[in-house]
Every structure is written in C-alpha cells, then in structure tokens.
Nucleic acid binder design. Structure first.
Lengths: 125, 125
DNA sequence: CTAGATGCAAACTCTTTGCATTGCC
DNA sequence: GGCAATGCAAAGAGTTTGCATCTAG
C-alpha cells in the first residue's frame, strides 16, 4: 500500500515547496499543465491519504472549502494571515500560558490539536 | 426593510433559547412542524440577515457545514466542547495575555474577531 | 399599495464514489 | 501478476438563486 506514484510525488513536492494552505483545486490547476491526464479526484484521494498519514493537515475556510498544508513531523499550531495567506507557527510558550489560563479560570480543557488563529502577519500589519 | 415575519421571529427565538451552534438544517427541522410551509432557503436567508446585523455569528465545521449561534450585543469568543457542543464564552484576560504574547514574540496581530477554540468543557472532562 | 420576504425548484460548488482501466512493486 | 491507484463521470451534500406569489407595514 501507498505506492510512490507520480500524482503523489508531485502533490507532496508542491505542498513542501509552498508551505502554505492550498485547496485541492489549486493543487490540481498547478499540477495539471505538467500532467494533463491528472484528475481532481486523485488529488482528493492523495490529500486524504497524506492527511491520514499525518504528513499534511487540513482546515476548512469560512466558505466551507478545505485546504491542506505540509506539516512535517512535529506537531505545532498555525497563525494564518487573512491577507496574504502566510502561515506562522505559533510559539508554544504562548499557547501553554493561554491553555493553562483557560483551564484554571473556566475549567475548559483546550484540545491543542484543534487550535487555529487568524490575523495579520508581520508583513501585512 | 427587515420585516418582523413569522420565520424570523421563530428562528431568532429558537437561537435565543438554545444558545448553542445550530445548522440551518437543524433549525429547519425544529421549526417545520409548527410552520409546515417553511422553506429551508428562508432559513438561510434569515440567518444571513441576522449575521449581517450582528445578532448571530456563524462558523463552519470540519465537514464544511455552517452553523449559527445567538450572540447578543457585546463581542466575545467561544470555546466549543467537541463532545457535547456546549459553548463557553472565553475570558477576555486570557485572550488579551495570549494575543499580546503572540504580537510581541512573533509580530502576528491576532484578529480577535476570528478566534475559535475547541476542546472539552468542564462537564465532559 | 408596494417593497421586501417567502416557497419551490433548479442551479452551483466542493467533495465523494462506482467502476473499468492502468501501472507500481 | 496482483492489488492499489487512477481517470472519468455521475452522485451527494450543503448552499444559493430566479421567479412568481404573498404579506408586513
């Protein structure tokens, strides 16, 4: 299982080089010129396989469209610029302080696998 | 503009009494028995109007489905229990400390209208 | 009376699935 | 050669829209 096919190599290479959230349609349009027979459904299946394997993580935007980002090995969180799409990894000290405060003051146990932030990155400020 | 119609009264009353995130379909099925001619598209249009007016806020879940919650007047944030759906308002001191840390350490200006948290509430812990 | 709201059905977008074919190992 | 992956097209789910009708103010 998990053959090393052209579609998978290209999809992963693109995600690794972009390092930002890409929709299935975006990936499809970026890869299509070099692979004319590529199907969108293959992109979806590839992304699902990568997500299950933990290589990429996904999110759903305000219109309900999913996008995917290369995530490497270690777990971390994202701060996503609403203007340019740049993704910062969020400092863990800040997260820890915040989750501790939330748990202490409100007894809410934050699941740190589901945190996501939006705002303006340093360049768009 | 913004007539006081039955559909709007019932939708808002339901959201006010539930105080948790409801999908358009859920609202539709809850109101349908008492209003047999009610259309799902009317719910969508009503929710969009309420959202624009700031009376409700919306989110999109991991499957891309939108849901809506009554938000009253003042702005605040939500901590959503992944298990029971209970919504806590998040303490502002904790948010402020966190956003300050994020801005200072990473120059990321968190847009506080887009924060959303997931985890386990006090009862589900 | 009249602009705005509604119901109904069709259209749209994104995603998933069935199935015959292809191609990696 | 065998089984996973692919392409293609059709089906799904949620949401939006066009249009004739209805109704709150």
């Amino acid at each position: 299982m998990m053959y090393q096919t052209a579609a998978r190599k290209h999809t992963l290479a693109l995600l690794k080089s972009e390092r930002r959230y890409l929709t299935a349609a975006t990936i499809y349009h970026l890869l299509k010129p070099a692979s004319p027979k590529l199907a969108l459904s293959t992109i979806y299946r590839t992304l699902e396989a990568l997500r299950e394997g933990g290589t990429v993580s996904s999110r759903v935007d305000e219109h309900g469209e999913a996008s995917y980002i290369y995530c490497g090995e270690k777990h971390h969180h994202h701060a996503i610029c609403k203007q340019c799409g740049h993704v910062d990894e969020v400092d863990c000290d800040a997260i820890d302080a915040f989750t501790t405060a939330l748990l202490n003051k409100q007894s809410f146990r934050l699941d740190d696998h589901s945190i996501e932030f939006y705002g303006l990155c340093v360049r768009c400020n």
